[in-house]
Computed example of a mutant assay.
Amino acid sequence: MIPFINTVFLEILLLIVCYLGDTLLQHPVVKQQFVVALTDSLTHGIVGGISWAIVCDLKFKKQECLECILCLVLAMLVDTDHFLSARSFSLKAALSLPARPPFHATTLVILVDITLVIVAAILKSQNLILGAMIFTTAWVSHHVRDGHRRGLWFYPFGETAAIPKPLYLGIILAFPLLMKILHLFFDKQRLKDKTIILSGAQLV
């Protein structure tokens, strides 16, 4: 599929998934806590997976598919902090916390990213840079979806107001495109480094 058409298709699919996921959460049929939690978690995961498919311009190569799956899993893992904070596997306890659990602090995403980039620069590790990009795509998509209902939490500074739906959807659609630009730059840099290494090997 032509890259532009592929991106447009995935952006539309991303919008549909967000709309369906949000609509289902408000539907009278979805009342049981388990169903609500599962629906929300799956929506987070699918949004993360599709977001990375946009970033890497998915052509269904093995590496790309694995990256999409990793992004999907990371987007869903954010909610594990409910159980960690509750110190219980009880869904009721996990959903009845007095405050937001730690993985929902957007400042944590920023700190993890800064740490990964610094370590990647020291170790000259392209894999860490790629990992940071996948992590960011996954967790930002989760935080923005949650932010539509509760705002973003910038610990220790406080929370923003709930993100209006048009803005929330706009960020969800725009963020993978921003990451796509960074990913293209990353690919060019990786190709450049590989060329330098091969040229050096030939000279030897």
Rank of each mutant, 00 (worst) to 15 (best):
K62W: 12
K62L: 11
K62I: 05
Q63A: 15
Q63S: 15
Q63H: 12
C65E: 05
C65I: 14
L66I: 09
C68K: 04
I69C: 00
L70R: 05
L70T: 12
L70N: 03
L70W: 06
C71K: 03
V73C: 02
V73D: 01
A75L: 01
M76T: 08
L77A: 11
V78W: 01
T80R: 10
T80F: 14
T80C: 14
T80M: 15
T80D: 08
D81S: 14
D81N: 09
H82L: 09
H82N: 12
H82T: 12
F83S: 10
L84D: 06
L84S: 14
S85M: 09
A86H: 08
R87Q: 13
R87Y: 09
S88M: 07
S88D: 11
F89C: 09
F89A: 11
S90E: 10
L91V: 08
K92F: 07
K92A: 14
A93E: 14
A93R: 07
A94H: 03
L95A: 07
L97S: 13
L97G: 13
L97C: 11
L97T: 12
P98I: 04
P98H: 06
A99Q: 13
A99T: 15
A99S: 15
A99C: 05
R100N: 11
R100V: 08
P101I: 00
P101K: 00
P101D: 09
P101S: 15
P102E: 02
P102S: 02
P102F: 11
P102H: 01
F103Y: 11
H104N: 04
H104E: 13
H104T: 08
A105H: 11
T106F: 07
T106Q: 07
T106D: 12
T107G: 06
T107Y: 01
T107E: 06
T107H: 03
T107K: 01
L108I: 14
L108R: 02
V109W: 00
I110M: 07
I110Y: 12
I110H: 03
L111W: 11
L111K: 00
L111Y: 10
V112Q: 03
D113V: 09
D113W: 06
I114Y: 05
I114L: 15
I114Q: 02
T115S: 14
T115V: 10
T115L: 14
T115Y: 11
V117L: 14
V117Y: 14
V117N: 02
V119A: 13
V119Q: 05
V119Y: 09
V119P: 05
A120N: 04
A120D: 00
A120T: 01
A120S: 12
I122W: 10
L123G: 03
K124F: 01
S125A: 13
Q126T: 07
Q126W: 10
N127R: 09
N127H: 08
N127W: 10
N127Q: 09
N127F: 05
I129P: 01
I129Y: 04
G131D: 02
G131V: 02
A132M: 15
M133H: 02
M133F: 05
M133Y: 00
M133T: 07
I134E: 02
I134T: 04
I134S: 01
F135R: 02
F135T: 05
T136L: 04
T136V: 07
T136N: 13
T136G: 06
T136F: 05
T137M: 08
T137E: 03
A138G: 08
A138V: 09
W139L: 13
V140M: 11
V140E: 06
